[in-house]
Design a protein around this nucleic acid. Structure first.
Lengths: 242, 242
DNA sequence: TGACACCGATGTGTGCAGACATCAAAACTC
DNA sequence: GAGTTTTGATGTCTGCACACATCGGTGTCA
């Protein structure tokens, strides 16, 4: 009972829309949702308002609550990402996230090398070394934690709040690939060293080397995971013109 | 009155939070907001719920509605971006967006060269040529439209819905710099050519050349705009650990 | 007779007011 | 200081009035 009715209503409707159980164009009536979810109007209305702000539905008088096409969903919203990761579109969502990370992390490494405060640089180096050790000992749990911490500190150190905000999504992908048995027992030795190189380049303010190391890491991550989404068709969002 | 009370309430509170008029930690009471905004409880509650989903506020029983620190705001939400662009943090927001674009667009160019459907490739080439013409004639209005269209089609052609979703934000930055008189009367000849090169590389499926051209464009854009945010301090979002 | 413009009925979201339930902070008791 | 009670804010529910997009009927004109 820790979650509010409001929150449960959002979760229920959001999940069903993302999975396609409530398809694009499907029209619901607020009154009908009250009965179905066994909650009052106020709960339904507040939930619909939130889903509206996420681009999942729109409301029209005399018509009802209409489910919008995926092209209108806000693909950066943490909730939307979470719902997609636990749906059939999981592969497509992972591919999007990895492509985004591949673009962003090298840039973040460069920025961190130029701008990060000294404490974050030290922290990054420490984590990189601990990560290499955990990789050698084969402690998967600790490795995962350090891996998440490493990329989080890097993104945070970029000083770009949009980059930093991707921490959560990165954590999801890293956790996901461990849970799904996509990690080898002993991580790739080269990858461990690239993390150390990246951290030390950031610490030394060497932006070019930091970027190179990050690109190496992301290239390897991409190639290791690309098998997950080979069957996923690409979706081309139409250009919205005024 | 095309805008609903609900929407106006969100706009009012969102703006005041982003500008800092309602500072981090500030506590409001729903009852008080009713009086202040001259609206009913339901309007206030629905607005607060949306702001909550954007990470701008949190509600606690027996306490009230608390304004959250900027590190909790969702920096990818279009509304948040819009509010920040029209606040004192405008420079910092522009810098973040340009850095994001600089990271994403070259990657999008590469993906588009590999995956975009034929029609989008043709469209991109057409727009690039029209853009060069508009640059030569000096039609600023048309140039802006074509510039937005070009980058929108490119991002759309990447087949990554997160990249594609940045169209709106890109349009904001391009429109912004025109409105604020940051554009020269006649665009840089090299930049015009880079757009054509990029389009033709995408059309030819030449990913490396497409990326290079895109990097050129973004480098120039960054250097032209960097004066806008020289005084803006960087903010380092703390790493959120569980 | 058929096509079209008008207009009122209908249904649905929007906004309002008031009540009770719940629960955590704060005050109090021992 | 630990446990208990009080209190005050959000959470939830309900009935009502209103705004307004859609639909179907009516009337007009060709």
């Amino acid at each position: 009972m820790s979650t509010s009715l409001h929150h449960r209503a959002i979760e229920n409707l959001g999940t069903r829309i993302i999975t396609g159980e409530l398809p694009t164009g499907h029209i619901m009536l607020a009154e009908h949702l009250e009965e179905e979810l066994k909650v009052s109007r106020s709960v339904v209305r507040e939930a619909v308002r939130v889903l509206q702000s996420l681009g999942l539905v729109e409301t029209t008088k005399r018509v009802g609550i209409r489910v919008l096409p995926p092209s209108r969903w806000n693909p950066f919203d943490p909730q939307v990402i979470r719902w997609r990761l636990s749906s059939d579109a999981r592969g497509a969502q992972l591919r999007s996230l990895i492509e985004l990370r591949s673009a962003v992390e090298p840039a973040a490494a460069e920025l961190a090398a130029n701008n990060a405060p000294a404490q974050l640089r030290r922290e990054l180096v420490d984590i990189a070394h601990a990560l290499r050790d955990a990789g050698h000992t084969g402690d998967a749990q600790k490795f995962l934690e350090l891996d998440i911490a490493f990329h989080s500190v890097l993104l945070s150190g970029s000083g770009n709040e949009m980059f930093a905000n991707l921490m959560g999504q990165v954590a999801e992908t890293l956790t996901g690939r461990t849970v799904h048995g996509l990690m080898p027992d002993h991580p790739h030795e080269g990858a461990l060293q690239w993390h150390v190189d990246l951290a030390e380049a950031v610490a030394a303010g060497d932006a070019a080397t930091a970027r190179d190391a990050s690109e190496q890491i992301m290239r390897r991550t991409t190639s290791r995971l690309s098998g997950t989404w080979t069957d996923q068709p690409r979706v081309f969002i139409p250009v919205r013109r005024n």
